[in-house]
Design a protein around this nucleic acid. Structure first.
Length: 654
RNA sequence: GCCCGAGUAGCUCAGGGGUAGAGCGUUUCCUUGGUAAGGAAAAGGUCUCGAGUUCAAAUCUCGACUUGGGCUCCA
């Protein structure tokens, strides 16, 4: 039995041993081998150099092609090894940690964690990258070797690689696979597969340097992480870098400054947002949309304080589970108080203020509730992560039989709102209980089952496809998370619909049922944006500052061509203001080109250009920021059009 | 909080042991020009703060604060 029978696509062939995967692929099509980086033999990933073994069965050989996702992963993984090889070459004392490919992180393609003999700085990145290129050009093969576990540990011990020893000890069976890049001092403990040789790595780049904890645990030693990315071709890498620039161009912090939307100032504290008039105008519109929908859907509006007695947070469990994220207590007349990190206990207080009957449910309390969380300084990031932020919060107190319907309405609500902003790709994730290993889940099994079913049924009822994630539920109940994809393909985690078995117990919530007995209501936490600040930041990036008419902080600007027209401009300005539009006028002595340029830069949807002609004919000339001059019309006609845009919350202006 | 950068005019940034620089913006004057920059002048800065080294510090050193990229955490 020395025959090797293989099947590649439709081709079935037999060869005498020995036969490598590369030879097998070549036998079918020479180009196929060129396009392949590795292969799958009966589904298992192997290198091209892998020797096929004679068996009775037919081996299915499937190439991993350059332009596939699997191929990209091989490239990135191999690039990570190349990075490590370069670092070791430059700094022989370096100890290696781990270096995976990143396939789902839009920012990076791979990293390697190292302990270098000295702290690396960003100035080292080009040097390391150059070394990577040098090694790549030498066209060195990646060589795989299966050796005895203890032998590999000895090898890493000799090389003074304690972290690698630790990994081999934990992960290897009796034998372990080691990878070399030939003729470099690099060895890794790794399953593979890799590209056959370094020449296959043509498009890679190092991007950033950061700290990272060994095994992701803050109690462990901090290492240095070097991030990079890699693609199959230079064109793809260039495209990706361009996309990255685009994201930078849309950065809400930059646009927020340019358009005077908000600021964060040292004197007031990091992570605390000052909303300027223009940001405030947008926020008002955001809140108005929510309020309209809340009213339609039977929510009531409640208002609660920013601070409460410490005892309240003891009852709610926040003192126990959430203290790290709360601002420290403050005292008055020997009573301790704490700023609120969440709104729920207050809404519970409203529920408890009077006894409830089954007829009173559901109770739906909503509030734009500003909360304060003591986020670590390093995590604060513009509007996306702050220490004071406003939750578009609501808590529903419902009977168990009402959960499905209430949740379904929350889903409708979410879809409606996100659609209005032009987010047509909304993703839902249902997080349910997993195998309770370390996690202790509160509540009875039957309750969990009912709750998970209610959530799943609500999703199914609305024909919403969703991803079910085991083990991601909070300890107090299952949830649906809402994520959206923005204009340049980034995913943002926003709101959540969360069932809670915990707080109703802790606060002993009740209602009197039809049977005259006391029952415990189910509590639903529900937020669509999560944080108004954060969602505002997402909107800034989504529209790159060019907000649709209904949201735009300045909707119209009036631009007279000469100062003979200023009076007419004033009257047009006043009339539009009267009609409730956010309008400005520019009476400076600039030429019209400069005024238009200024308005374009500020992304104002409509410019009204007024000259002698318009004055004579009592008309206005309208320019839309995207399409340009749209011609003359009467002010009345323009108002009708603008009103329609405002009322329908249209995304495009024409 | 931890690791690596950065902090100079309202903004974007250059400079760098010995009078503080540019562009944009602002104000004023000239200009009254028809769809993305007309011209001129002026105002505007304890070079983040505090210590140290030095005859001399915005510049070098240390520390603090803020900020950017990450880690961790999360909305």
């Amino acid at each position: 039995m020395s025959e090797i029978n293989i099947k590649i696509g439709e081709n079935q062939k037999s060869f005498p041993a020995p036969l490598s995967v590369a030879e097998a692929l070549k036998s079918v099509d020479r180009d196929l081998l060129k396009k392949s980086l590795a292969a799958k033999v009966n589904g298992a990933e192997v290198d091209l150099s892998y020797e096929l073994q004679p068996t009775d069965e037919v081996l299915s050989v499937e190439p991993i092609l350059t332009e596939t996702r699997d191929g990209l992963e091989v490239i990135r993984h191999s690039a990570a090894h190349l990075l490590a090889a370069a670092v070791i070459d430059l700094f022989p004392e370096t100890k290696l940690g781990v270096g995976p490919a990143l396939m789902d992180d839009p920012r990076y393609g791979y990293y390697y964690d190292v302990i270098a003999p000295r702290q690396l700085t960003e100035a080292d990145l080009p040097v390391i990258e150059k070394k990577m290129r040098d090694i790549a050009k030498r066209n060195l093969p990646y060589r795989r070797e299966v050796i005895d576990k203890n032998e590999l540990i000895k090898l890493f011990t000799d090389r003074n690689e304690p972290l690698k020893c630790e990994l081999v000890n934990e992960k290897a069976g009796d034998t372990a696979t080691a990878y070399y890049i030939e003729d470099t001092p690099f060895v890794d403990f790794c399953l593979g597969p890799h590209v056959p040789n370094t020449n296959k790595l043509k498009a890679f780049k190092l991007l950033a340097l950061s700290g990272a904890y060994w095994k992701g645990d803050a109690n462990n030693q901090q290492m240095q992480r070097i991030y990079g990315t890699a693609f199959a071709t230079q064109e793809e890498l260039d495209g990706w870098l361009k996309q990255r620039e685009e994201a930078e161009r849309r950065d809400h912090r930059r646009i927020g400054k340019e358009l005077d939307l908000f600021s964060i100032q040292d004197e007031y504290g990091q992570g605390l947002i000052l909303w300027h008039p223009k940001g405030g105008a947008i926020r008002m519109e955001m809140e108005n949309l929510l309020k309209e929908e809340l009213k339609k859907r039977g929510y009531s509006f409640v208002f609660t304080p920013h601070i409460a007695k410490r005892e309240l947070w003891r009852i709610s469990g926040h003192e126990e589970n959430y203290a790290d994220s709360m601002f420290a207590p403050t005292s008055i007349e020997d009573e301790e108080y704490r700023l609120k990190p969440m709104n729920c206990p207050f809404h519970i207080g409203i529920y408890k203020a009077s006894p409830k009957s089954y007829r009173d449910l559901p109770q739906r309390y909503s509030e734009m509730g500003t909360v304060y969380r003591a986020e670590l300084s390093g995590t604060i990031h513009g509007l996306m992560r702050c220490r004071g932020f406003t939750v578009d919060d609501a808590h529903l107190f419902v009977r168990p039989d009402q959960v499905r319907e209430e949740v379904a309405d929350c889903l409708d609500f979410a879809i409606k709102v996100f659609e209005t902003y032009g987010f047509d790709k909304v993703k839902f994730e249902l997080s349910v209980r997993g195998e309770a290993e370390n996690k202790i889940y509160l509540g009875a099994d039957a309750d969990w089952e009912n709750a998970e079913n209610s959530l799943a049924n609500a999703l199914k009822e609305r024909n919403i496809s969703y991803e079910r994630i085991e083990g991601e539920a909070a300890f107090y109940g299952p949830k649906i998370d809402i994520k959206i994809e923005d204009a340049i393909g980034r995913i943002w985690q926003l709101g959540t619909i969360q069932l809670d078995f915990n707080l109703p117990e802790r606060f002993e919530l009740e209602y009197t049922g039809e049977d005259g007995q006391k029952h415990r209501p189910v509590m639903v936490h529900r937020a669509l944006f999560g944080s108004i600040e954060r969602f505002f930041g997402v909107l800034v990036e989504q529209f790159a500052g060019a907000f649709p008419f209904w949201l735009a902080p300045v909707q119209i600007t009036v631009l007279p061509i000469t100062d003979r027209i200023n009076d007419y401009a004033e009257s047009v300005f006043k009339e539009l203001k009267q009609a409730g539009f956010r309008v400005e006028s520019n009476l400076k002595s600039d030429k019209i080109g400069a005024k238009i340029r200024d308005a374009q830069i500020h992304k104002i949807p409509f410019m009204i250009v007024l000259g002698d002609k318009e004055l004579e004919e009592n008309k206005i000339a309208v320019r839309e920021r995207k399409v340009g001059d749209i011609g003359q019309m009467s002010l009345e006609e323009f108002k009708v059009m603008a009103r329609k845009l405002r009322e329908t919350r249209a995304l495009a202006s024409v």
